[in-house]
C-alpha cells in the first residue's frame, strides 16, 4: 500500500523499504479535453543538486535533451509529446546506489513546453501526480497527487529525493512557478 502524501509532507523512502535501490519515478497528468488551441506537451526533468541547491554542472540536469546522467544513476525514459494515454505519461529511472556522493538531492519537475506561445498553464492540467515505484517489484511506494493549487503557473517543482544520513527521503514540494523550464534552470544553476 503506497503512502499518499499531501503538499509539504516528507516521508522515509529507504528506511521503510530496506535494500531498495532501483526505483521508477512516474509522473502523469490529464490535459485539455477541449477543441481548439495546441496539444499540451508537458516535460519532466530531474535536477541532481549539491548541498547548495545548485547543479555542479549542466550535465546534472537530466531531461529530454540529456536523457542519461553520466553516473548511470538517473535515466529519463522518453518524452511524451501529447499527454495522451492512461497511467504514467513520463518516467525517470533511478538507481539510488549509483547517485554520486556530492549529490545531496534530486528534484523532479514538470514544465509546459512553449507554454507562453501556446497560452497554456497548469490551471488547464488536471489529475497531475508523481509516484515512486519499486522497479524490481513494481510496487507503488509513495504517491503524491498535486491537487487543485495550480493556476497560471507554467513550471512545478513536484517533489524531491534527499539524503538524510545514509537514507533517502521523499519531500512532496508542489511549488509552482512562472517562466517554464527556463526559469527552473536559472533557479538550479543550469546555463541555458
Amino acid at each position: 500500500m503506497a503512502v499518499s502524501l499531501s503538499k509539504g509532507q516528507k516521508v522515509d523512502l529507504t528506511k521503510t523499504n530496506p535494500g531498495l535501490t532501483k526505483i521508477t519515478v512516474g509522473l502523469g497528468w490529464d490535459t485539455n479535453k477541449y477543441d481548439g488551441g495546441f496539444d499540451f506537451d508537458l516535460d519532466t526533468a530531474a535536477f541532481l543538486l549539491a548541498d547548495s541547491g545548485k547543479v555542479a554542472s549542466d550535465a546534472d540536469f537530466v531531461f529530454y535533451g540529456n536523457k542519461d546522467h553520466n553516473s548511470g544513476a538517473v535515466k529519463h525514459n522518453g518524452d511524451n509529446l501529447t499527454g495522451a494515454g492512461d497511467g504514467d505519461d513520463e518516467t525517470i529511472s533511478i538507481d539510488l546506489s549509483k547517485i554520486p556522493a556530492e549529490v545531496a538531492k534530486v528534484d523532479f519537475t514538470v514544465t509546459i513546453h512553449e507554454a507562453e506561445e501556446r497560452k497554456q498553464n497548469f490551471g488547464q492540467v488536471s489529475n497531475a501526480y508523481i509516484h515512486v515505484v519499486n522497479e524490481t517489484s513494481n510496487e507503488e511506494l509513495i504517491r503524491y497527487d498535486l491537487g487543485e493549487d495550480y493556476s497560471v503557473e507554467t513550471a512545478v517543482i513536484v517533489a524531491e529525493l534527499y539524503r538524510s544520513g545514509a537514507e533517502w527521503k521523499f519531500n512532496a514540494i508542489g511549488s509552482g512557478f512562472a517562466g517554464g523550464l527556463k526559469a527552473l534552470c536559472g533557479n538550479f544553476g543550469v546555463n541555458v
Partner: peptide
C-alpha cells in the same frame, strides 16, 4: 481571470 486561472 485568464484561461487556466484557478483559485479558492
Amino acid at each position: 481571470m485568464q484561461r487556466g486561472f484557478r483559485d479558492k
